[in-house]
Amino acid sequence: MFYPNSPQTSPQLTQIPYGQQYAMMQRQIQQPYHPFATTEPQARLYPYHYQGPIQQEQGGFITQQSTAASPQYVQMRVTPVDQSIMSGYPNQTANGSSSSSFNYNIHPQQQQQQQQQQQQLRHHAMPVGSVPLQDDRYRKQLIVNYLAPDVTSTDLHELFSRFGELDGARIIYDKQTNMSKGYGFVYFCHAEDAKEAVERMSGYEFHGKWLKVGYSTNPLNIVPSNSSPYVHAGSRGAAG
């Protein structure tokens, strides 16, 4: 039997160049792979992502010199942007860049009308829970959420009447099932009393439920100042 490094198959040491006398086997001759043993700084910083320098080929596509990437890492192929796409944008300079302001050559009167329309939209648009300043009635009506099913309009009136005089209180019921929808409205005579009720009743436990109280901004629920107070009856038909 002959071994790869046996004296019968191995040459004389004098015939082997210096430095390879003890590297006779194939696994010894093959050098191990060192990912950080390279002179390129990109490979030292990113050993798993770097795959060699990027070269520009004919046709405008950018390719990489090395083989496919590892399945664990996804390499994105980048193509140059066609400058003709950006030619339609206004205020574009000769080098292809555009300024931040756009001039669509709008007539001054049209621009003024658009600004007025935007101001009107901001004036009428009102986020949930906010209180408008032009109508004091919005500051007097509250919406009470997360009410228990057994709470009546009379219970709601008695709960909030300790903060001040009320114009009314009612629970909203479903017309088909005649069941409470879980929320109601309270109408105060003074805005200061309503503000105190919002601050003190939010998070209050009532009939096993934690109440959420806020201003009601729905104009359909506003009680006119010259109208008669609501009837605080315990029956659902009268309260709904």
Rank of each mutant, 00 (worst) to 15 (best):
A125T: 04
P132R: 03
P127C: 15
R200Y: 12
D150K: 02
G168R: 05
N145D: 01
Q31V: 12
Q51L: 06
A23L: 10
D155C: 02
Q55E: 08
T152R: 10
L159W: 01
A191Q: 04
S228C: 07
P41H: 13
A233D: 13
M24E: 15
Q141M: 00
A148Y: 14
Q30H: 01
N178R: 03
Y230M: 09
G59F: 10
T38K: 00
A68N: 13
Q65M: 01
S98W: 13
A197T: 01
S66I: 10
Y138A: 07
L147H: 08
Y215C: 01
W210P: 01
N221S: 09
A148R: 04
S97F: 03
R236I: 10
R27D: 02
V223T: 04
G203R: 05
H232Y: 09
A23H: 00
F188G: 05
Q8E: 09
T79E: 15
N5C: 01
D150H: 12
G168D: 04
L159Y: 12
P229S: 08
Y3M: 02
I171F: 15
P90C: 13
I85C: 10
G96K: 00
V223G: 06
Q20V: 15
G129V: 10
Q134N: 01
H157G: 04
D167A: 05
S180T: 08
G60C: 06
M126A: 03
H157Y: 10
A43L: 09
Q42M: 15
M201P: 10
Y104S: 06
P53F: 15
K140S: 00
Y173A: 10
N91Q: 11
Q20P: 09
V74D: 14
E199C: 06
H123V: 09
Q120R: 12
R162I: 06
F206V: 06
Q83T: 06
M25R: 09
L121F: 09
A94P: 10
T39M: 13
M76Q: 01
L133S: 08
G96A: 02
Q112G: 08
F102D: 11
K140W: 02
S98N: 03
H107I: 15
N178Q: 02
A197E: 05
G234E: 04
F102M: 02
Q92C: 15
Q92L: 07
P71A: 11
T38Q: 13
K195Q: 10
Q28M: 15
S98L: 02
Q111V: 02
D155K: 00
F61V: 02
S84W: 14
F163V: 05
H123C: 09
G88R: 07
N218E: 06
V74T: 01
Y33L: 07
E165T: 11
Q65N: 03
Q20R: 11
L45K: 00
E199M: 00
F160W: 15
L211M: 13
N178V: 02
T63C: 05
L211A: 05
R122V: 11
S97G: 05
Q115S: 14
V128K: 13
S101A: 10
P108E: 07
Y146T: 04
S216N: 00
L142Q: 03
N105I: 07
H207W: 01
Y138C: 01
G182Y: 12
Y138N: 13
P35R: 06
G164Q: 11
Q113L: 11
Q55T: 09
D82C: 05
M76L: 13
F2W: 11
A94L: 08
S70P: 11
S235A: 11
A238T: 14
S227M: 09
W210A: 00
L147P: 11
S99Y: 03
I143L: 04
Y73N: 08
Q141W: 01
R200P: 09
Q83P: 09
E40W: 14
E57A: 03
L142K: 01
T9K: 00
L211Y: 15
G208K: 13
P41W: 01
Y187E: 11
N218C: 13
M25T: 11
R200N: 15
V128S: 10
G237P: 03
I16G: 01
T93H: 01
D155Q: 02
G184I: 05
D135N: 00
F102C: 00
N145T: 01
K140P: 09
T152Q: 00
P53K: 03
D82I: 11
P4I: 10
Q110V: 12
V231D: 12
P32T: 09
Q120W: 02
N226H: 03
Y146H: 00
G129R: 04
Q176S: 05
A169Y: 11
Q12K: 08
S98Y: 06
R122K: 07
Y33S: 01
T177C: 03
R139N: 11
Q134Y: 15
R170Q: 00
H49K: 02
Y104G: 11
A191T: 10
Q72I: 11
Q64D: 01
Y3T: 02
P224K: 15
Y173R: 08
P41D: 13
V186E: 05
D167E: 04
T217L: 02
A239H: 03
S180R: 02
Y146M: 06
T9S: 10
P219G: 07
F102Q: 13
E192H: 12
Q117D: 09
F185P: 11
Q109N: 04
Y187S: 01
L121R: 03
Y173C: 11
E196I: 12
V213F: 06
Q118E: 04
P53V: 05
K175E: 03
T152V: 09
F102H: 14
R44H: 15
D136T: 13
H49S: 10
Q51I: 13
Q115I: 13
S235L: 02
A69D: 01
P224Q: 11
I29T: 12
L121T: 12
Y215T: 06
G234L: 08
P47H: 06
Q117G: 02
S180N: 11
Y215H: 06
Q120I: 14
S153V: 03
Q110G: 06
I172Y: 03
V78C: 01
R200S: 10
Q26D: 15
Y204F: 08
Y138V: 15
N178F: 14
F36M: 02
I62D: 06
Q15P: 10
G129N: 07
N5R: 06
V186G: 11
Q112C: 03
Q115V: 07
M179Y: 14
G203W: 00
A148D: 14
S153H: 02
Q51D: 14
R170L: 06
G214I: 05
R122P: 07
Y18M: 15
Q176R: 11
G52C: 08
Q92S: 13
F188N: 02
H49P: 05
F36D: 04
Y18D: 10
Q114A: 09
V223S: 09
R27K: 11
L211S: 09
Y22L: 12
P71M: 09
A169W: 00
E196F: 03
F163A: 02
G59C: 14
E192G: 08
Q55H: 13
G234S: 13
C189L: 06
M25I: 11
G60P: 10
T14S: 14
Q116W: 01
N218D: 01
G182F: 00
E57T: 13
K175Q: 09
A94K: 13
D82T: 15
Y18F: 00
D82Y: 12
Q109R: 03
I62C: 15
S100R: 05
V144R: 08
F2Q: 08
L142T: 13
A169T: 11
T14N: 01
G214A: 05
T93N: 05
L133M: 08
F102S: 03
V78G: 02
I106T: 03
Q31A: 07
G88N: 13
S101H: 05
G59H: 14
Q113S: 14
S227G: 07
A239W: 00
S101F: 06
G240M: 14
Q42P: 03
Q56W: 15
T154D: 04
Y173S: 01
K181L: 08
L133K: 10
D136A: 07
Q75D: 03
L220W: 06
D82A: 14
A94H: 13
K209Q: 01
Q83G: 10
D136C: 00
I62E: 14
H207C: 10
